[in-house]
């Protein structure tokens, strides 16, 4: 576990994340603007709305333009015969080992944003945890799913 995993996820993940973060921030901005208008109508002090706008601008910059790239750089995975090895995290880097015999089921998922870029994510569930490899190319995702499900044979142990 000393070496990080080899495989990176699809490069388009950055675009997909940017879009979804942009949508989220758009909602936040809508709320902020509504608050701004209300403050003007009711003559509330404006300094705190200014503060909120500054915070929002900074977080928009971070979430939409900085973090997706960093997250992409960090996201690695590697599938061995006996286990799955995943690394992710921006500030807190997490490396996870999931033994194949503990895998209960594997799913592939695709939302509208991922679909736009022909991406899909793979979710691996054990009896206690779920792990997601986000944004792989569609065909990579389905081969990975099939590979993991073939490798994850039912063990005689309970659970």
């Amino acid at each position: 576990m000393r070496q990080p995993p080899k495989n990176t996820i699809a490069r388009d993940a950055v675009k997909a994340w940017k879009i979804s973060e942009a949508i989220f921030m758009g909602i936040v901005w809508a709320v902020v603007i509504a608050g701004f208008i209300v403050s003007i109508i009711f003559d509330f002090p404006l300094w705190y709305i200014g503060l909120v706008i500054i915070i929002c601008s900074i977080s928009t910059y971070l979430f939409v333009f900085v973090f997706p790239k960093v997250r992409f750089k960090r996201w690695r995975y590697e599938v061995f015969d006996q286990e799955i090895y995943i690394q992710h995290g921006i500030f807190i880097v997490t490396r996870t080992l999931v033994p194949m015999i503990r895998v209960q089921h594997v799913d592939t998922k695709q939302g509208p944003i991922l679909k736009k870029y022909q991406l899909a994510s793979v979710t691996i569930s054990t009896a206690a945890t779920t792990h997601e490899i986000p944004a792989l190319l569609e065909e990579d995702a389905s081969t990975l799913r099939d590979k993991i499900s073939a490798l994850a044979r039912v063990d005689e142990d309970d659970v």
């Binding site: 807190i92 997490t94 490396r95 206690a128 945890t129 792990h131």
Partner: peptide
């Protein structure tokens, strides 16, 4: 060993 479902190492900047 066989009861552990998954293992994680988490490390933040200062820990590193």
């Amino acid at each position: 060993h066989k009861r552990v479902q998954s293992f994680e190492i988490s490390q933040h900047k200062i820990q590193k």
